[in-house]
Amino acid sequence: MIEGARWRRWVFFYLPMAMFLVFLLFPFYWMIITSFRPDGELYRPWNSVNYNPFWTTRPTLEHVRYLFEETLFSQWLWNTTFIALVSTVISLVCGVFAGYALSRLSFPFAGSLGTGIFITYLVPQTLLFIPLAEIIRNYKLGDTPWSLILTYPTFLIPFCTWLMMGYFKAIPRELEECARIDGASRWKAMLYIIIPVAIPGILSAGIFAFTLSWNEFIYALVFLSSPEQKTVPVGVTSELIRGDVFFWGPLMAGALLGSVPVAIAYSFFVEHYVSGLTGSVKG
């Protein structure tokens, strides 16, 4: 849009862009403003004189204090971090090796095995939790972090495997061949050449896996029952919505604090992450 009248640029570019931004960012704004608004303002009727839904003149940390002092929020944060990290590491390790094997080693049925792994990823979690619940019960893992650490990889490993498969395929085969002529075994060639080159792909897979397990809801809801075992998404919704009473302030504060680690992870790795998705390897 370098050419053309100014109004044209406004109508076709700035205006749609602005609408899109508002649409996208308003929920976050609402979450933030609600987290810092005192209860008195939150539950004020809409037709009162000083009703002002979009701003507050008396911001408060009361909801955050409530979250940390009156609920087990810090415990939930720790649970979620622990579970997300461990299941991400497990899935990454499996995904990297499986992706490498499926893309580089030519063995019988490699193609159909790859497709099979992809199909397991397509089975919806809302169905898969039923048989998994049975397994968790049989192994007496219910209400422990391990019930999630061991079940999250069921959807994380296929995801990581597929992402890594694509990434490994984009790395020129000659790099590895050259390393092997240079005196590296297959294992060393993978360790010193292929994996360092695939770091952007591994980071993307890791961030995605971490986010998926951080936000996961159904398994956490089904497999965990006692409040001190819960993860953030389940803890906040189950402990701060009592019957039909919504504790909006702490709820929004919980949502805000719960999304901060993910946002940090994304912004920190965003450059690697983008180049990982576009699969760019410069030879």
Binding site: P172, E174, L175, E177, C178, A179, I181, D182, I193, P196, V197, I199, V281, K282, G283
Partner: peptide, 15 residues
């Protein structure tokens, strides 16, 4: 095999 090979696309280790 004590050989060295030069590839068409050079295959330099990018990192």
């Amino acid at each position: 095999r004590d050989i060295a090979m030069v590839f068409q696309n050079y295959a330099l280790y990018p990192h």
